[in-house]
């Protein structure tokens, strides 16, 4: 069981990730739809989530900037990129994300990532 924070500007993906993760017994603790909102919510959290699922291309701050700011606040935060921009894979990992899923990915890959995180 892990607590998950989803950051993506596409509402349907929040719904999908929610379904997948709940099905496997995880809990969605927060939903943000752009980078600034994500930072605000992250700052106000009493307890950090086990993992963040991070989109890249969003209005305002992009996923890489948001990741850098989150890691400044909490350097141990586990952030998994889920992005359709395969070209930014390297930059995302360099900014401190722990993994990169290239959309579209099989839901099994996301579950495996979360399991890996929980186990670690």
């Amino acid at each position: 069981m892990a607590t998950i924070f989803i950051v993506d500007d596409e509402p349907m993906l929040h719904e999908l990730y929610g379904q997948i993760l709940m099905m496997s017994g995880h809990e969605i603790v927060a939903d943000a739809y752009d980078g600034d909102e994500a930072i605000e919510m992250f700052k106000r959290m009493n307890k950090p989530p086990a993992a963040v699922i991070m989109d890249h291309r969003m209005p305002g701050k992009d996923g890489i900037e948001t990741t850098k700011e989150m890691l400044k606040i909490n350097p141990d935060m586990k952030i998994i990129f889920a992005s359709a921009d395969d070209a930014i894979r390297g930059d995302a990992l360099a900014s401190g994300a722990c993994d990169f899923l290239s959309k579209p990915f099989p839901i099994g890959d996301l579950l495996a990532e979360i399991e890996k995180m929980v186990a670690a």
């Binding site: 596409e10 349907m12 997948i20 099905m23 359709a84 921009d85 579209p104 839901i107 099994g108």
Partner: peptide, 21 residues
């Protein structure tokens, strides 16, 4: 187009994936 199609494919394939389970 590539970005948006991939996003839509994620939603479609995600739900199909769920359906298959």
């Amino acid at each position: 187009m590539g970005h948006d199609i991939n996003n839509m494919s994620q939603i479609a394939s995600g739900y199909l994936d769920l359906l298959s389970r």
